[in-house]
Amino acid sequence: MNGVVALEQASELAAFGAKAVSLGQALRDGLPVPPGFALSGAFVDAVAAADDAAIVTLVQQVAPLAGPLAVRSSAIDEDGAAASFAGQHQTLLNVLSVDDLAEAVREIWWSANSDAAITYRKKVGLFSRPNVGVVVQKLLAPDTAGVLFTRNPISGADERVIEASWGLGEAVVAGLVIPDHVCLSRQGQVRERRVGYKTVSIRPVAGGGTVEVELPLELVERFCLEDSQLEALNRLAGLCEEVFGPGRDLEWAFERGTLHLLQCRAITTART
């Protein structure tokens, strides 16, 4: 089996992990996922071990993406409802070129073998060797990004819950801001709209990586989504449910007005 495949060809869960396979499925069904590549767990192992042939293959195969890149972990057989690895494994944003990829892949391999990850694995009853795939995509420079639950993750109500902020979505995911909060009916009507308090955004930085940037005062309490964008998000939620079924947890981003899907997985916290 090829250890590096275009994301739309990633279909083997045991090889590439849940994130890669769900993004591959989304691409095959026409959802707006940025193009990229999936690296199998075995291939990630080889790159982390500085296997020269694997590193050459990596650089050659991923070269069409050029940089900057987003490099994310795709935990294998473990990203399900019982043991979410969200936050345990590292994500590296703004990896400047494919030449820097091997080091980024090695860092992700170590994040799955870190003391924090090992402690978490034991807590959830996993005593096996961590196996982690990797997703490499072109890094977006979003104006607005965030998360969307296709069903209320707290109450279980049949409504869309959107949380959004300026810049990369990691500001929302990492809890660095109080995001704008919107509840939509399944038909797209706004049930609740609460402006957040967004003091920082995460932006790519010239030398690689990202940096927290203080936001101008006028943006802190300004709503970051227009009505047309809420409509687009509601349509995306419906399309994701058509492809993957109900109860999805999405990460999304608007870049120059275009909506991109960055992740789509099962909600793990909803009361059902």
Partner: peptide, 24 residues
Amino acid sequence: ALLFKERDFEAGETIIQEGSGGAA
């Protein structure tokens, strides 16, 4: 020796935490 993998840390980074699980 061949089983070892490189790992780099930035100044101030915690490498291992007393009491936590570890496998390396």
